[in-house]
């Protein structure tokens, strides 16, 4: 291969749940490889395992995180392309000082809006992002916002109730 003039990034800066991480690009376990997905980096390099990988092909929604204000699929995102981004994962929702759950998290507990719980972090992140943008979203908007999220146990009904409860109380944009 001839020499290319491009910028081959040597380090990636990520702000994950408010904490800045400077990660070097390389092939060691503590480094980011150009082919690593954001889901891999979060789970394996940073040890933030609340983000789950279901299908690893962008079709189940489990790996959803909020990046720069939008829910995205961390399994279909290259970490090296997230330089400078702000990322919120399920671990970033509760109040770090008091440990108090985010109202959406609390509502999911109150409604038992999960069964096996594997899809729950992704569903909560998508719900959080929706209510951040539309605090009083209606039921149809909730269902549409979650339309890419797979739940095989069928927690759907309780999830919609849990999210609507927060929307109706106007606590979603906390």
């Amino acid at each position: 291969m001839k020499k290319t003039n491009g910028k081959e990034r040597t380090a990636v800066t990520l702000v994950v749940n408010g904490v800045t991480h400077e990660l070097n690009v390389g092939d060691q376990p503590y480094q980011v490889s150009p082919c690593h997905t954001l889901a891999q980096t979060l789970r394996e390099t940073l040890g933030v395992t609340g983000t789950k990988v279901g299908c690893d092909q962008g079709a189940c929604g489990s790996c959803t995180v909020i990046m720069d204000g939008r829910p995205i699929l961390s399994c279909m995102t290259l970490t090296i392309q997230c330089h400078g981004s702000e990322i919120t994962t399920i671990e970033g929702l509760a109040d770090p000082a008091s440990g108090k759950l985010h109202p959406i998290q609390q509502s999911f507990v109150d409604h038992s809006a999960f069964q096996c719980g594997f899809c729950t972090p992704g569903i909560i992140m998508a719900s959080k992002s929706l209510l951040d943008r539309h605090p009083s979203a209606d039921k149809q908007a909730v269902k549409e916002a979650l339309s890419g999220h797979y739940c095989r146990c069928i927690s759907h009904y309780q999830v919609v109730d849990a999210v609507m409860d927060v929307a109706e109380k106007g606590e979603g944009d906390r």
Partner: peptide, 21 residues
């Protein structure tokens, strides 16, 4: 009565450990 799942908080905070965790 409806009572919170014992593992509810772990699930909604991402602390519940699955095999790949």
């Amino acid at each position: 009565k409806t009572t919170p799942r014992k593992d509810g908080v772990a699930i909604v905070t991402g602390k519940a450990d699955y095999i790949d965790d």
